[in-house]
Amino acid sequence: MTQIKMIATDVDGTFLNDQRQYNHERFSAQLARLKAANIRFAVASGNHLGHLHKVFAPTPAVQTFVAENGGLIVDHHHTLFEAPMPTDVAHAVVDALMTDATLRPHAFRLSGAHGTYVSRDSKPLDLDAQNYFFDNLVTVDDPRNVNDTIYKVNGEWPHSSVQHVVDQLNTRFANQIHATPSGFGSIDIIAPHMNKAVGVTQLAQSWGIDSSEVAAFGDNGNDKEMIAHVGLGIAMCNGTEAVRSVADLITPTDNNHDGVLDVIDSILADKV
Rank of each mutant, 00 (worst) to 15 (best):
residue 143 P to D: 06
residue 28 S to K: 14
residue 96 A to V: 08
residue 179 A to Y: 00
residue 67 A to C: 15
residue 250 I to E: 06
residue 265 D to M: 05
residue 95 D to Y: 14
residue 267 I to V: 15
residue 13 G to M: 10
residue 205 Q to G: 00
residue 229 H to I: 06
residue 244 R to W: 05
residue 175 N to H: 12
residue 51 H to G: 00
residue 111 S to A: 14
residue 29 A to S: 14
residue 177 I to H: 05
residue 165 V to C: 03
residue 220 N to R: 04
residue 88 D to K: 12
residue 117 Y to E: 08
residue 63 Q to E: 12
residue 254 D to N: 15
residue 71 G to V: 09
residue 49 L to D: 02
residue 137 L to I: 11
residue 151 Y to I: 05
residue 254 D to Y: 07
residue 4 I to V: 15
residue 30 Q to F: 11
residue 160 S to N: 13
residue 128 D to W: 03
residue 204 A to D: 01
residue 246 V to A: 10
residue 230 V to P: 05
residue 87 T to W: 12
residue 235 A to I: 11
residue 129 A to N: 11
residue 131 N to I: 08
residue 12 D to R: 00
residue 17 N to G: 03
residue 178 H to F: 12
residue 166 V to G: 00
residue 232 L to A: 05
residue 118 V to Q: 10
residue 128 D to R: 11
residue 133 F to D: 05
residue 102 T to E: 14
residue 33 R to G: 07
residue 208 G to M: 13
residue 44 A to V: 09
residue 218 G to N: 00
residue 211 S to D: 04
residue 7 I to N: 08
residue 215 A to I: 10
residue 183 G to R: 07
residue 216 A to P: 02
residue 41 F to M: 02
residue 201 T to H: 10
residue 100 D to Y: 00
residue 127 L to I: 13
residue 256 N to Y: 13
residue 211 S to V: 10
residue 26 R to C: 08
residue 253 T to H: 15
residue 223 D to I: 08
residue 51 H to A: 04
residue 243 V to H: 04
residue 240 T to E: 12
residue 168 Q to P: 00
residue 133 F to P: 00
residue 254 D to T: 06
residue 49 L to C: 02
residue 6 M to W: 09
residue 183 G to L: 09
residue 41 F to E: 02
residue 67 A to M: 06
residue 62 V to Q: 02
residue 166 V to H: 01
residue 202 Q to T: 14
residue 141 D to C: 09
residue 225 E to A: 13
residue 264 I to P: 03
residue 106 H to A: 14
residue 262 D to F: 09
residue 155 G to V: 07
residue 50 G to A: 09
residue 167 D to E: 14
residue 145 N to A: 15
residue 133 F to C: 04
residue 103 L to C: 04
residue 175 N to Y: 06
residue 106 H to C: 09
residue 65 F to Y: 15
residue 128 D to H: 07
residue 3 Q to C: 08
residue 180 T to H: 00
residue 98 M to G: 02
residue 57 A to F: 03
residue 154 N to D: 06
residue 21 Q to H: 13
residue 209 I to Y: 08
residue 157 W to Y: 11
residue 234 I to Y: 07
